[in-house]
Each structure stands twice: as C-alpha cells, then as structure tokens.
Design a protein around this nucleic acid. Structure first.
Lengths: 230, 230
DNA sequence: CGAGACCTTGATGTCAGTCAACTAGTGTGG
DNA sequence: CCACACTAGTTGACTGACATCAAGGTCTCG
C-alpha cells in the first residue's frame, strides 16, 4: 500500500519512510483546473461538522488542524493535516469537529466532492483513490493514537518530533513546527507549559537544538528514538 | 453517512446513536457462503502486520483487539473490534500491529480480500462499501483518540463505558465488558490498578453498579456524562 | 509605543504509576 | 480429592510527573 518498511542495515532499527508514496495527490492535482484555492489564516475556520461540506481538500502549503471541542472548553486536535494530505469534513454523530488553519498561512485546494464521487462510480481508479485517502487517514490516526498512548510528556514530544520529521522531509534532520505550542499541546493532550518544558528538556540533553522557535534540528536521532520508545 | 445525530428533546444533550446504521455488514453477509468462520480464544493471534493477510474479517461474536507493541514491551490497543465491525490487517510502515482475540470466545468471518477488491472494480456499490469500512475505522479511531485525550482516569473510564454502551446495545443501560481489565488498561493507556480503582470510584459515587466483574449497569447516565466531559 | 499573542520558567498540589499484598476463580496433575 | 500454579481483580502506601497558577520575556502588528 502506501509507505514501506525499510530495515536500516546499520542500526537494525525500523526506519521511517514518508507515507507520501501515495499517488492520490497526483491524481487529484489533475483536477486542479476545476478546483478552487484559498488561503486561510491561523485559527480561521475551514468548515465544521454541522455544515456538511461538499468539498474535498488538499493541503497545498501550511497546515490545518481538525479539532474537537469538549463541552467544558478544552480542545483536542484529532488530525494534523500537512502538505499533500487530503481530507474532507465528514459529519460525526458523537462529536462536533471543526477544521481550522493552523499555520500562519495555509493554502487549501478544494475539489468538488460530488464530482469526485460521481467520477468514482464510473472510474474504479478514482474509487480506489477514495479508499486510499481513507486509508491514509487511518494511518495518521493510528500514529497519533500511539503518540497519545505514551506515558510521559518527553515520550510524547519526542514521538511527535519524529513523526513530524518523517512526514515532512523524510530524511532531513531539521523539523519545521508549522503550528504553535498551544496547538502541539492540544495535539498531545498536554499543557502548553509541559510542551515548553519538554522541549527545553530535550535541548538540555543535547538531543535537539532550536533555530528560532519554529524550527528544530534533531541532533541525536538514536537517542531521541530511545526516549520515544517506552 | 453512517450514524446520525439526534437531539434528545428532554435533556438537550447530544445522544449517542450506534454507528451500525451502515449496511456494510449486510452486504458482506451475502458473501457468507464463500466465507470461512473460525473461533479464536483470548489472546490467540488472528494475524499480524508482518504477514500481509489476504483476508477481510467481520466480527461475528466476541471481540478482537488490534494492538501495537512498543519496543520496551508495553502494549497499546489501537482498535477494539466488536460484533459487526469489519477490519483487515493492513501493513503499517511505522509500527508492527497484531490482531488477537480479546473475548474468551471470538468468532470471526473471513472473506477473501482479493475477491472483494475484484468485485469492487466492477461493482461501484462494493467499492463504496470498502470506503465505508474505512470510514467506520476512522470513526472508531477518532472516538478512541478523544477518549485517550482526556486528562483524568475517571474521565477515560467513563467515556469508555459510554462508548461501549453506544456501540453495543444503543439504548440499554447495561454494558458487557467483553475484555479483561488488562485490555481496558491497554486500551486507555492506564495501569490495571487505576482501571480497577476508577471503576470502584464510579460505583461508590453511585453512577454505575456491577453485575459480576464483566457486566456493568449504568445507573446515572447524566452524571456519567458530566464526569466524562472535561 | 502599546496591545496582544506566543513562549518560557518557577512553585505547588494532585493524580496516576509502581510496588506489594491479598482474594477469588480455574485448571492441572499426582 | 487435594495441592499447586496461574490468571484476574482489588486495595493500600508511596513517589514522581504533570496541571495549575503566577510571573516575566519575546515578538509582531497597529
């Protein structure tokens, strides 16, 4: 399917390979002529689950977040959408979700969902594409679930950085944080303070270094993997 | 799609409706003639992500768990499969999953995945069914994510019971725990002791009562929802 | 310059993990 | 039949980690 497992012969460790082996974005891009592009600012709402959107979105640049709001106000980010991720705003019986821009500038390409679904009925490749989109969503959610399942904040932050690094550039050691610490906190179910403290903790241990507040360099990836694995 | 939102006029609260509005199990059941049934015992492995299975499973009775094992031994249950849930064992680049029987007796119906996928290419209803299966998986994962995202153990346990109640009988107030406390702990990323303590805590508050160890009655659902919502 | 969002650090209380002990049920084999 | 081992569940004592509250710092934008 999408993404493959490679065994790094040196470290005998499962190395992460970006999941972008999918050709779904490529196929969708063929429809860009009839698609609409829009730029969203941080916090600007793309859509929410009360209004059933007739759109399929592809992140072109920046980042979007799908978040659920608990009755007492706390937010939980359920999915972090990065460039080339495709998503729709499905209604959900149990919770109300909203999708917002998360980076300072987020560009989304919007495809007519009905059109794509109609195409899917005659073209099995499009149908397969829809399955693949869902499959990738499952993969992202599983990955986040495993991050949330970790016990300590350091493990969560470490795993988050590793995941982000994999999803972004694949092999490079520099990670760009597209979202604020507050969003990271909502993503990891931590408080902002703990996020901040954990990052400085990783710096003090010499595992990462920061270039500004929004860019991080992974110095000792093996040690980071050790911290991460619980 | 699957599942609908009803507003309970009395309580003005979003009431949960089972997601089983899906007709996917129904369609698949039409294939039961060419499907294989098997019974699994607790802990028995159905398949794991190293061997790519050519099967699509439907839970007929009992319960199955999809779990990931962290390097240092801890287990995280990533998906809890209850009767009429459909799942496959997809390979995952990042983690190794295994699917095991979780109830004492779990019956799975196994369909040929290749056959279903071939059917999907000619029959758009089958293709849609595959999308729907994925969509339901996304719903389950999102629900679990929101449970894991809660802060206190009481909230997690409460939300877990509510979710289980919804997925099982819909409206009845009795919840059958198909899995052990240990599995609940792995599902909620808690320790067994905390699971036990939280359950007795809910009992002491008079929100639930237990009939044996594996069956629970929800006494005060509103109060349980209050505990749950953070 | 001031306002506001974003980030960091410190002090403190609470909650959950860990270790340990105990009970109950279940199955096995002599 | 009983002794034994094993699994499942519960409860208690203790410690460590995270949330919370509070304060101060940095940056951007009007």
């Amino acid at each position: 399917m999408t993404g493959q497992v490679h065994i790094d012969s040196q470290t005998k460790r499962l190395s992460r390979v970006p999941l972008k082996a999918s050709h779904a974005p490529h196929i969708l891009r063929a429809l860009d002529a009839v698609a609409a592009k829009r730029t969203y600012r941080r916090g600007e709402e793309v859509c929410n689950s009360t209004c059933i959107s007739d759109c399929l979105y592809r992140v072109t640049s920046g980042a979007a977040k799908r978040c659920a709001t608990f009755p007492k106000g706390r937010q939980q980010i359920v999915d972090l959408l990065l460039p080339d991720d495709i998503f729709a705003c499905a209604p959900n019986a149990h919770h109300s979700f909203s999708i917002e821009g998360a980076a300072t500038e987020t560009v989304l390409t919007c495809y007519s969902r009905r059109r794509v679904e109609t195409l899917a009925e005659s073209d099995s490749r499009i149908a397969k594409l829809l399955s693949e989109i869902a499959f990738e969503a499952v993969c992202r959610l599983e990955a986040q679930l495993l991050i949330l399942g970790r016990t300590t904040a350091l493990e969560k932050i470490g795993a988050f950085l590793v995941e982000l690094s994999d999803r972004q550039s694949g092999r490079s050691n520099s990670v760009v944080l597209p979202v604020s610490r507050y969003d990271i906190a909502d993503y990891l179910a931590l408080s902002v303070e703990t996020v901040s403290r954990s990052l400085t903790g990783l710096k003090e241990r010499g595992l990462i270094s920061s270039i500004g507040t929004r860019s991080i360099k992974i110095i000792d990836r093996d040690a980071l993997d050790d911290v991460t694995s619980c």
